[in-house]
């Protein structure tokens, strides 16, 4: 069986909000090390990989592997019934057909319980290759989100160029073109505003901005985001969690 407790329901609410627009139904695999999810979005452009280590829970118990086949939007609907600071418990018996969620306020004078029906989902898993990326950029998650939102007014695609001078985002559409360039920098007072670039060779890739905008909904999970790119390969975009991560593998646009 699975029994996992979080001190604040907001932790799971934010994670689910970060993936719900891309994923429909998917399996969450639970074992003694924690919860994991790997799923393609409906268009197969983004692969979402979520890891929630058992250390990230205030209490965690899972003696035997459990697969939770869930509709992510149904999970989001139920989670909306929890207050952000409620204590959240997830429970599922071995081979059960439901996930039980309880929400308690800190004084434990209100307890809500919801049972979510589980589904048998025949899901494809892909092998994510171990890769040394040509360029790695760590930057503010909010700044990345803002930059992409601005450029989406111009075009449906963004080109990202990374070289030793910095990272450049550009877009071109019917009304004209625009770009934002960030130089590597260290902000001693607000470390999350630093821009750190590690590079073995310059890279330029283009991406669909609508999907990118869905990815950056994870910005509430972490102050920084790690963007990794290699020419002609999907980008890896990672938001770190206290114990785990949400990673997106994002297929680029390729010149014909």
């Amino acid at each position: 069986m699975l029994e996992a407790k979080l001190d604040a329901a907001s932790q799971l609410k934010k994670i689910v909000e970060a993936i719900r627009d891309m994923l429909g139904e998917c399996n969450i695999e639970c074992n003694e090390t924690g919860l994991a999810l790997q799923s393609l979005d409906k268009s197969h452009i983004v692969l979402v990989s979520l890891l929630l280590g058992s250390d990230g829970f205030s209490e965690y118990r899972c003696d035997r592997g459990v697969t939770l086949g869930l509709n992510i939007n149904s999970l989001a609907t139920v989670l909306r019934c929890a207050n952000n600071d409620d204590i959240l418990t997830l429970r599922s018996e071995d081979r059960a057909n439901e996930l039980i969620l309880t929400f308690e306020d800190s004084k434990a004078d209100r307890i809500s319980e919801f049972n979510l029906r589980l589904m048998d989902i025949d899901q494809e898993y892909l092998a994510i290759p171990e890769t040394e990326y040509a360029a790695t950029v760590v930057m503010s998650a909010a700044v990345l989100q803002r930059t992409l939102r601005d450029l989406s007014a111009l075009s449906e695609a963004v080109t990202i160029e990374i070289d030793k001078e910095g990272i450049r985002f550009s877009a071109e559409g019917d009304l004209g073109k625009g770009s934002t360039h960030f130089k590597p920098c260290v902000d001693m007072e607000n470390a999350e505003n630093s821009i750190n670039i590690t590079l073995s060779e310059p890279v330029s890739l283009s991406f669909n901005l609508q999907y990118f905008s869905n990815i950056t909904k994870a910005s509430s999970l972490s102050s920084t985001v790690t963007l990794q790119m290699t020419a002609g390969m999907p980008a890896q975009i990672e938001y770190k969690l206290p114990s785990g991560h949400v990673r997106y593998y994002f297929a680029p646009k390729i010149e014909d």
Partner: peptide
């Protein structure tokens, strides 16, 4: 012209 690729073109089933 650029066309959108899919993840399946890069990552294979194990």
């Amino acid at each position: 012209r650029a066309s959108q690729s899919t993840i399946g073109a890069f990552f294979k089933k194990p």
